[in-house]
Computed example of a mutant assay.
Amino acid sequence: MAENTTDRRVRKTRGQLRQGLVRLMREKSIQDITVKELCEECDINRGTFYLHYTDVYQLLHSIEDELLVEFERVLDGLTAQSVLAAATPSPAMCSMFELLADNADMCLVLLCHNGDMAFLEKVKDIVRLRVLDEWGAQFRSNGRDTYDYVYSFIVSGCIGMLQCWLEKEMPISPREMAAMVEGVLVKGVTALL
């Protein structure tokens, strides 16, 4: 019972720190946020902060790492076949946008407001590694190596659409957004095949 109480308190404290960090990152970059300022924002003692994290960067990186693990899990189901052949939107693409919607506050500050370029590069690297083998073969089979162009189109376009959706406070559902992105991918990608 005491362990559950401790776990609940730890989750609550970490949740408060996450929300406080999001609020502050809407106004300034991570480099300009101090532990003292974050603790004041969350009404948490600095000693409590240091029980969990060494600095604001470690807090940010732990949040990013959690998001990336979930992102990779969702990407497991997102294959070229599921996007090109399945009914739109594919369950995997819907899961992707549900994950983004569930973490919209953090995604907004990481990808849009005072964003962390290193995080964005990690996302791009994960996508590149996940699609390189599967999609790369399709775009090399036409006698020209168009993969780098297709990859740039897909990633930049998807991230741009995601940023727009987040900045507009998600005016359409994750399912509608997934269908829109898949529609753009399929029409844009099939023109190059």
Rank of each mutant, 00 (worst) to 15 (best):
V22F: 01
E167K: 11
I63H: 06
V109F: 00
L129N: 13
R128M: 01
T79Q: 05
M106T: 15
V109I: 02
G160W: 03
D43T: 12
K36C: 10
M180F: 13
L99P: 01
Y57L: 11
I126K: 06
V131R: 00
S173L: 05
A80G: 11
S152M: 03
D65F: 00
V127G: 01
S62W: 07
A87K: 14
S95T: 08
Y147E: 06
Q163A: 11
G157W: 02
R46I: 03
V69N: 03
Q138K: 11
Q58M: 12
Q16S: 15
A118D: 14
A80H: 09
L193R: 14
N45S: 13
K124M: 10
R9A: 13
A137T: 06
N45F: 07
A86R: 11
S82H: 09
Y147T: 05
D43A: 12
A179K: 14
A85I: 08
V123A: 13
F139N: 04
Y50K: 09
T6P: 00
P91Q: 06
R175D: 07
E121T: 11
K124S: 11
V181D: 02
S141T: 08
L75Q: 01
R140M: 09
T5S: 13
M177N: 04
M180T: 14
D148S: 08
T146P: 00
Q81D: 15
L59G: 02
R18Q: 14
A2F: 08
W135L: 12
L100W: 01
E37M: 10
I172K: 12
V189S: 06
K168V: 02
C39Y: 07
D76F: 06
M177K: 15
Q138N: 11
F119R: 03
N142V: 07
F97I: 04
R128V: 02
G160S: 08
I159N: 00
V69W: 01
T48G: 05
Y147N: 01
E66I: 00
I154L: 14
T146M: 06
V127F: 09
T88Q: 09
L84T: 05
Q81L: 09
